[in-house]
Amino acid sequence: MPSPIISVDHANFSYVTFTKQAGFSGAWHDLFHRQKSTVAAVQDVSLHVNRGEVLGLLGANGAGKTTLIKLMTGILPINTGDVRLFTDQVPFRKRPAFLQRIGVMLSQKSQLAWDLPPLDTLVLLREIYYIPHDAFTTWLAFLTKELAVTPQLHVPVRKLSLGQRIKFELICALIHKPEILFLDEPTIGIDVSSQANIYRFLKQLNRDTQMTIILTSHNTKDIEALAQRVAVINHGHKIFDGTVTGLISRYATVPLLEIVTDTPLDPLPTHVRQVDATHYEIDATALTELPIDPRRILSVNRHNGSLDAILTQLFSEEAPTQ
């Protein structure tokens, strides 16, 4: 079996924050006795990714998934443990040969020059990554065509829509054909059709070029659309690593069915609880078949069976004691 392209072993990362006290006397006090507190952002996380995999990192805001991305790309140094990419590269050393092989797109940060068309930023990246002119032109034409932004290549960035801008940020991350692509919240704040376009394109890219993709999101649609495997990060710990269906079957422990009917049921069958006029709940563990005439059912949903519901439940749980 080939060795994984990314190996994270027992990685830990914590940072120090200073708590500020209110008011003038507080500020005076802080000047001499600042209240230090250490926040453990990533704790004992191990993760192995094979070439060509698409891994989704799931977690609530502040769970540590962006930090994990920053550790893998070398923006941040790990405190203890080991992170290696391409079997022998330590990301934080930032060897040019290493940086040449990864592509990163961070949400909330932009590498596009605001007053210039995206093409100018891309030309700069061409020189930074030593991309031959011909290869650059062909690859760029392909990328802009697939993401439907060819006409916008010459429009100043400030005049682009958010969706178009994000697509160009993605192109910036892909322009040097990296082997591993890191995406931090790639679809935050953009419309559904742009999202679908990006998913389709990334899937195709992964299939055709065996590009490894690591993406973080708290949008479960991103993950369901793309990821073959998910790792759930909560309060700095990895609490799950497996497939999306595996995640659902593991946590969807109480099979509660939500049923909507065309007219109210009268009389109310046993084991059925009425929520409102045509809306019912059934505990499926107690039954082998539905006690409702199928012709009257408008919809059946398994409550606690969607990824969203599971994550809401997972993330609302208390932090493990440290």
Binding site: K109, S110, I128
Partner: peptide, 11 residues
Amino acid sequence: GNLDYSLLRPV
């Protein structure tokens, strides 16, 4: 706090 990309480029 917009230097992250600068840290990631081979220059």
